[in-house]
Design a protein around this nucleic acid. Structure first.
Lengths: 130, 130
DNA sequence: GAATATAGGACTCTTTCAGTCCGACTTCCT
DNA sequence: AGGAAGTCGGACTGAAAGAGTCCTATATTC
C-alpha cells in the first residue's frame, strides 16, 4: 500500500521529540505527550537504540537521547532500523530469484524506481522534522 | 511498510503484457503466462477498466486491450486505480485532522516527501516496463 | 444453443500489524 | 537496604488488511 507503518510514524515522532528537547527523555514522557501506547513505543525506542540511532540510560533518571546530530539521521536509516523488509516489491530489492523472469520484465525498472525512492528518503533528516 | 500490494504488482505485469503484445488479451492468457490467480487478476483488470486505463470486450474472442499509449500510463495512475488509500502517512495525504498537531511537527515535511514520491511514481510509465 | 469471455458479489484463509501483558534487570535517591 | 523509576525483552492477543476462492449472471461469437 506504499504506506509507512505505525512503528516508523511513532519512531519519527520520538526522534523529533528528542531532537527538539535535546538531552534525555523517557518513554513515558514521549508516550504521554504524543498519545502513543507506552509498550509499543518502548519497543520502537529499543530498536532505534539497537541500531545506534539513540542511546539509552537505565535506572531512575534514565531514558533515551540522540547519539547523532539530527541532520545526520535520515529516513532510510530510521526505516531500516524499524522495519524488516523494506523495498517496493520482492524483485525490486535484494537478490531476486523471481520465477517469472523470462516473461516478466518489470524487475529492472522497479529497481530503478526503488533507487529513486531511497534517494528521496535519504534526503529527509530528523533536523527537518523540527 | 512502503511496499506495493500484489494487486499493483499483478496489474503492472498485465499492463506490460498488453503493451508488449498490442491488441486484445484474455485474463486466462495473462494469468497462465505469469502464474497469477485467475480470479484475482480478473478483478484487477476490471478495476483498471473502470478507471479507463484499458478497454474490455465481452463474449467469445473478447478480452482486454490498452486504451492509452504505454507512455501515457504512469504508475501514479495505476496505483490510484488499484488501491484505496495511497499516501505515506495519514497526515501526509488529504485533509489531515491529526489530533496531535501542536506537539507533532512532522506533517509538513511528510507532505513534501509525499510529493517527491508521487513525482517519482509519475515519472515511470508502462512503456518503460516493456 | 454451446462455448468462451467479462462482470461482480460474497466469502474464507492467511498474514501482518498494532497493541497488551508480564517478568527481569539496572540505577538513583533517601 | 530498599523502594521508585527506568530500560530490556519475550510471549501473547485481537483486529484489520491482503490474497485468493467460489459461484452466478451476462454478453458475444460461431
Amino acid at each position: 500500500m506504499l504506506r509507512f507503518s505505525k512503528r516508523v510514524e511513532y519512531g519519527l515522532m520520538a526522534l523529533q521529540h528528542l531532537a527538539k528537547r535535546g538531552g534525555v527523555s523517557t518513554v513515558r514522557e514521549i508516550s504521554e505527550e504524543y498519545k502513543i501506547s507506552y509498550d509499543l513505543l518502548a519497543k520502537i525506542l529499543q530498536d532505534l537504540k539497537r541500531d545506534g540511532l539513540i542511546d539509552s540510560y537505565q535506572g531512575v533518571r534514565g531514558g533515551y537521547a540522540l547519539m547523532l546530530t539530527p541532520d545526520s539521521i535520515n529516513l532510510t536509516r530510521v526505516v531500516g532500523a524499524l522495519e524488516e523488509d523494506s523495498g517496493i516489491m520482492d524483485c525490486a530489492s535484494g537478490a531476486s530469484g523471481c520465477d517469472r523472469s523470462g516473461t516478466c520484465s518489470i524487475e529492472a525498472p522497479m529497481h530503478k524506481l526503488q533507487a529513486t525512492i531511497d534517494k528521496a528518503l535519504s534526503s529527509v533528516t530528523v533536523a527537518q522534522l523540527m
